[in-house]
């Protein structure tokens, strides 16, 4: 809290001290974006566009520039506004959750299963991470908390086989949403990405008619590597949405701005804590305000 307030005060005092617009002001705004992990290239693009807008609208007071900049970013993010809903209607649906190590996949599944069950849906989860130590027990604990069943095999078994069983169980039980966990994997590891490919072939073959949502989980603390992650995962599994986790920290997650422009994949959900209720819909205004507040 202290850090955030400090930042907001800092920006406003900077803007006040400027009065009229000059290049120093744009440098300050550039700093805010870069330190939010927007990335230097995207930041320079945005600042260029901002400069044009400032000219076009004949803005002369520094304090107005902040609003213009916010709107500029909101426009980028809102290009995808319509697609923010999970693609899970009508049933049946399958949600696959992927991402690099430790970003919050398993936790997000616990929260999502809980939310969907609260909405009255029949939810089943599949323990597709058979690799990490105690990953199955971890998801098992979440399945208890969320009050949904879990399909699991033993540690080190074939993840594609777990997903296969999950699908059969979902069909037999008339499940609305089947949510599948996968092991964390770095996008530059060929064999692990191929394993993911195998899982997707099973889904295609066994559950081709189900709605499909492929969520890439991105840790808000991540810097520019998130762009490469997203591109590589996109190639293998056609991600349809991003979940931005750990936004309860001081990191702003600005890299998703570039993610959305470059990949055209919307951010759908955000994680704001380790509790079961700490999953929310992504809201552009709140997100952008947090960068500046």
């Amino acid at each position: 809290e202290k850090t955030r307030k400090g930042m907001a005060e800092k920006i406003d005092s900077i803007l006040k001290s400027y009065g009229k617009i000059d290049n120093g002001l744009f440098d300050e705004l550039e700093e805010i974006l870069v330190t939010s992990d927007v990335g230097i290239n995207t930041t320079m693009d945005i600042i260029e566009r901002l400069k044009t807008k400032v000219k076009e609208n004949k803005v002369t007071e520094a304090i107005e520039v902040k609003e213009l900049l916010k709107n500029e970013i909101k426009d980028i993010l809102n290009e995808k506004e319509k697609d923010r809903e999970l693609n899970i209607e009508p049933s049946p649906a399958i949600v696959l959750v992927v991402g690099v190590n430790g970003v919050g996949k398993t936790t997000t599944i616990g929260k999502l299963a809980y939310n969907l069950r609260e909405e009255g849906k029949r939810v089943l989860i599949a323990a597709g991470d058979t690799f990490r130590a105690a990953a199955i027990e971890q998801l098992g604990e979440w399945s208890k908390r969320a009050g949904v069943d879990m399909i699991a095999h033993q540690e080190n078994s074939d993840p594609a086989a777990v997903i296969f069983d999950g699908i059969q169980a979902a069909k037999a039980r008339k499940t609305d949403v089947l949510i599948c966990d996968t092991a964390g994997r770095l996008h530059n590891k060929k064999n692990l990405m191929n394993e993911l490919n195998k899982i997707f072939r099973v889904v295609e073959r066994e559950y081709g008619d189900a709605r499909r949502e492929v969520l890439l989980v991105v840790d808000a603390t991540t810097g520019q590597n998130a762009l490469i992650q997203a591109k590589e995962f996109q190639e293998v599994c056609n991600i349809s949405g991003i979940v931005l986790t750990k936004l309860d920290g001081t990191a702003k997650g600005g890299v998703v701005i570039a993610l959305q422009t470059e990949l055209n994949v919307p951010v759908k959900l955000i994680g704001v804590g380790e509790g079961i209720e700490d999953l929310q819909k992504f809201n552009t205004d709140d997100f952008v305000d947090a960068i500046f507040d």
Partner: peptide, 30 residues
């Protein structure tokens, strides 16, 4: 893979605990 926030994290952990060193993980990534 940590981005710009690394300084806030490290500074605070060091302030509160007096860290003696750092271990950098997941360098097998790119």
């Amino acid at each position: 893979m940590t981005g710009q926030d690394a300084v806030n994290v490290a500074e605070t952990f060091d302030e509160k605990l007096g860290i003696t060193g750092v271990i950098l993980t997941k360098l097998d990534g790119d």
